[in-house]
């Protein structure tokens, strides 16, 4: 009986203590103590959680690495595939730009008929400057037709087979182009060389030539149509003791990067060789 009473008293005391704590907590009287208690809890929670995460990663990361590696491989293959597509598209864009420029040129110069051709090779000898294009006699190409780009003069057809032609560049040793100095309004002859340099020879000392002067085809001798841009004067060698002055020429066309060219198909070159007296 006595033991039962003691238990009842203990229970009442505990309940009273708990209720008292709740009342104090709800009334805000335990704020300082609860804050410090919460801080301790948070610190302990943070400490335990951090250790748990480390412990968890220790077992789970190897599996994630495998997954990540697989994903990385997959993404790398996609990147390489996309890079291939980018290169292909860039090439298409470049070709498109060249074609657009050629079309634009042919629209601006409607007096001639043009046939676009792709450069498929070069002369195997380093001493000669020739290109091989993919248009031949089947496409109406004949020997002597001028070849140009949207930038300027390239050369002329030197030999033709059914499906391809060989183009002699204006930089070739045997190439001779009758040009007109636009500023000085004088005609001259431009010569190629085995090294690929262009020069104007037999230019009278009285003619005023300066670096940067633009050169156009003169149309004389019937080899090329008139008024096609050829290049610019690069330098002039002039000595009072010489009869003529010599000018080197920078061609307007970059022959090393030629991909597409246009053949002027309605131009009939005139061979004046029989009229030149034999030496």
């Amino acid at each position: 009986m006595k033991t039962k009473n003691i238990e009842l008293i203990q229970t009442v005391i505990v309940i009273s203590f708990v209720i008292g704590l709740l009342v104090l907590a709800l009334s805000g009287s335990l704020g300082i103590y609860s804050n410090s208690l919460n801080s301790s809890f948070v610190a302990a929670q943070s400490f335990i959680y951090t250790r748990f995460v480390v412990f968890q990663e220790f077992f789970t990361i190897p599996r994630d690495v495998i997954t990540l590696r697989q994903r990385n491989t997959q993404l790398e293959s996609e990147v390489s595939k996309l890079q291939g597509q980018v290169v292909s598209l860039q090439k298409s864009v470049q070709e498109g730009e060249v074609l657009a420029a050629l079309v634009n040129f042919s629209r601006k110069n409607p007096e001639n008929s043009y046939s676009a051709a792709t450069v498929i090779g070069r002369d195997p000898s380093p001493f000669l400057r020739y290109l091989i294009i993919d248009k031949g006699s089947n496409d109406g190409i004949v020997k002597g037709m001028p070849v140009i780009t949207d930038q300027g003069l390239v050369g002329r057809i030197d030999a033709v087979i059914s499906s391809a032609s060989r183009v002699q560049l204006i930089t070739d040793t045997n190439a001779v182009v009758n040009i007109r100095l636009e500023k000085a309004e004088k005609d001259a002859v431009m010569l190629g060389s085995p090294s690929g340099d262009l020069s104007i020879d037999l230019l009278s000392q009285e003619v005023i030539v300066q670096p940067g002067d633009v050169l156009l085809t003169s149309g004389i001798s019937g080899g090329y149509p008139a008024d096609i841009i050829v290049g610019q004067v690069l330098s002039v060698k002039k000595k009072d003791s010489d009869l003529f002055q010599l000018a080197t020429v920078q061609p307007i066309v970059d022959f090393t990067r030629l991909k597409l060219v246009m053949v002027i198909t309605d131009f009939k070159s005139i061979n004046i060789d029989p009229l030149i007296p034999a030496q």
Binding site: P126, F127, L128, T173, N174, L191, S193, P194, S195
Partner: peptide, 21 residues
């Protein structure tokens, strides 16, 4: 070089040709 010299109006400097070709 001999063939070019025979077939065209070859006026290039031989030393320059050797150097660049």
């Amino acid at each position: 070089i001999g063939a070019i010299w025979i077939n065209s109006n070859f006026s290039s400097n031989i030393v320059e040709l050797i150097q660049i070709i």
